[in-house]
Design a protein around this nucleic acid. Structure first.
Lengths: 202, 202
DNA sequence: GTCTATAGGAGGATAGAC
DNA sequence: GTCTATCCTCCTATAGAC
């Protein structure tokens, strides 16, 4: 059916966006990978930008699903860490579309896409709530504006450190994720020895 | 003279690469901004990739100069922090060329450019030395491979958090830099209050 | 070395038959 | 809704006069 075919298209777009990025991806490639003619693609999606937007909607829905499955009763920091891990796993597995942040027509298409924007807002609200809760309970630094924390988490989805470490071949995906998790949450500075934990209990 | 004109070209390229990135930048734009004909550009640089490479050589030289001016006697962490600050300042000021990490012909051109590669290696060696020294003196975490630390520092040069915070308009450049410095070195986690140094003397 | 003019090709999008 | 064939724009690169 139509739905199945469009899913196949979006998946191909997703992988190509992850492999080469929006600019380097050509509509011909998408068509070739799906196994249909380019003109047929345009019966489903009106433009290359809309193809990318559909891929973004897909990952956004996945993110919503993932967030919704997390226990609301858990410590907020744990949920934040879980989402961050999941995001980086997606990228390392080649399933995170990468879009240029400068392209204006692409931005316009994305911002005109209600499903994408709604998803983005819902995810941001949920993460934002966890961030503020984590700052309130003393697990995330309160010196940082919550929005800066949110951006820092989002940035993990396109962190070049992930691919560099992967190219190095010294670590597997899980090790890479834990390394970047550590730089993200613990920072580069050395920490005082674990034995003198401040007040992690309760 | 020739040298002066080429400097003007490289500077224009540098700004355009910072504003729009490599793919969106057109050679016509470069020519227009310099105020010469496109064909004249090609008398100076054989290809668009070489234009970008020249811009990269320029920033790499600036980085070398900056590093060389830092006091070797200073604590290694301070030199690392200084370079990181300088890099982010460059980006916020619109002077950090941004290249796609996927483009293969561009990568080939860059890696064939001896001046760029030599500069990259020198800077990496110097930073690498400081990183290992900082790990030895306990100021940077020893649990992280030095190469991961190096990549994390390099990634600050293209950190989207910088532009997002700038677009937000809530902070000036210096505040943004300090925020990202904090996320980078201190991490997102809360730290124990400064007053309670690791082992209190009673 | 600067210009005008143009080649050459890639790639997004469409026409129209079936 | 799928195809083949084609259009058309944009952009890199070059030709050739001065």
């Amino acid at each position: 059916m139509l739905k199945v075919r469009e899913d196949a298209i979006i998946q191909a777009v997703n992988r190509l966006l992850s492999e080469k990025g929006f600019d380097a991806m050509t509509v011909d490639e998408v068509a070739a990978r799906v196994g249909i003619a380019k003109a047929s693609l345009y019966k489903h999606f009106p433009s290359k930008e809309d193809l990318a937007a559909a891929a973004m909607v897909r990952v956004m829905r996945q993110a919503q699903t993932f967030c919704a499955a997390l226990p609301e009763a858990a410590p907020p920091l744990e949920n934040i860490r879980a989402v961050t891990r999941w995001t980086m796993g997606l990228k390392l597995a080649g399933n995170m579309p990468s879009l240029p942040s400068q392209n204006s027509t692409l931005r316009a298409t994305l911002m005109a896409n209600r499903e994408y924007m709604d998803g983005l807002i819902e995810v941001s609200d949920r993460l934002g709530g966890w961030i503020e809760a984590a700052q309130a309970d003393g697990s995330i630094s309160s010196r940082l504006p919550a929005i800066a924390v949110l951006y820092t988490l989002y940035a993990r989805a396109c962190d070049p450190v992930l691919e560099f470490l992967k190219m190095g071949g010294q670590h597997n995906d899980d090790e890479i994720i834990e390394l970047v998790m550590s730089t993200c949450f613990d920072g580069l500075n050395a920490r005082p020895p674990e034995t003198s934990a401040p007040h992690k209990a309760h």
